[in-house]
Simulated assay, not measured.
Amino acid sequence: MATYPIQVKRFAYRGSDPRKRQKADEQNRIATKLETYINALVKSQTAPIQMYFYHQIATETGFSENTVRELCFSIDGGHNGFKAIKPSLGANSARTESCNDGICIATFASSIESVIAGPAPPPSTGLIYRNKYD
């Protein structure tokens, strides 16, 4: 989840090709506009955790969805958008407050532990299996 202030990826071109330099400058200009727009959205956010979708940002800013996705993917790594935490809250208090509002998000730690541990072993049948070397 992203926290305020949000930073959008910038391009650094240090070569001598004027076309590539112009493209990088244009991408950085768009990134600055997106960053300003997204930070205004996040700053006025009332929900503890809010999902922002690239297609909505693209529609509201007038840039293509592909451009918005390319520049904003680094915010939170989401393919369709990103989640942002209300600026006055930390990550833990945002989770707690969102659960109190009835929009409870599954606890991150327990879901990660279940992924790491893998599936539960099958129930015991009482049989002992031996290999041919026992």
Rank of each mutant, 00 (worst) to 15 (best):
E60H: 06
E60W: 01
T61N: 04
T61Q: 01
T61C: 01
T61K: 01
T61E: 03
T61L: 02
G62C: 03
S64E: 09
S64G: 05
E65V: 07
V68D: 01
V68F: 04
E70P: 03
L71T: 06
L71R: 12
C72Y: 01
F73W: 10
F73E: 08
F73I: 10
F73V: 10
S74I: 05
S74V: 04
S74N: 06
I75T: 03
D76L: 02
D76K: 03
D76N: 09
G77M: 05
G78A: 00
G78W: 03
H79M: 12
H79R: 13
H79A: 08
N80M: 02
N80I: 02
G81Y: 03
F82V: 03
K83P: 02
K83V: 02
K83L: 07
A84P: 11
I85Y: 12
I85K: 04
I85M: 03
K86C: 12
S88A: 14
S88K: 12
L89C: 00
G90I: 08
G90C: 09
A91W: 14
A91R: 14
A91I: 14
N92I: 15
N92H: 13
N92Q: 15
S93P: 08
S93F: 13
S93E: 15
A94P: 14
R95S: 01
R95D: 04
T96N: 11
T96K: 15
S98V: 13
S98N: 14
N100V: 06
N100D: 14
I103C: 03
C104E: 10
C104Q: 08
I105S: 00
I105Q: 05
A106N: 08
A106I: 08
A106T: 09
T107H: 08
T107P: 11
F108Q: 08
F108I: 03
A109Q: 12
A109Y: 11
A109V: 14
S110K: 11
S110P: 02
S110N: 13
S111K: 14
S111A: 11
S111G: 01
S111V: 14
I112G: 01
E113W: 07
E113K: 14
S114Y: 13
S114E: 15
S114C: 08
V115E: 09
I116A: 04
I116P: 00
I116L: 08
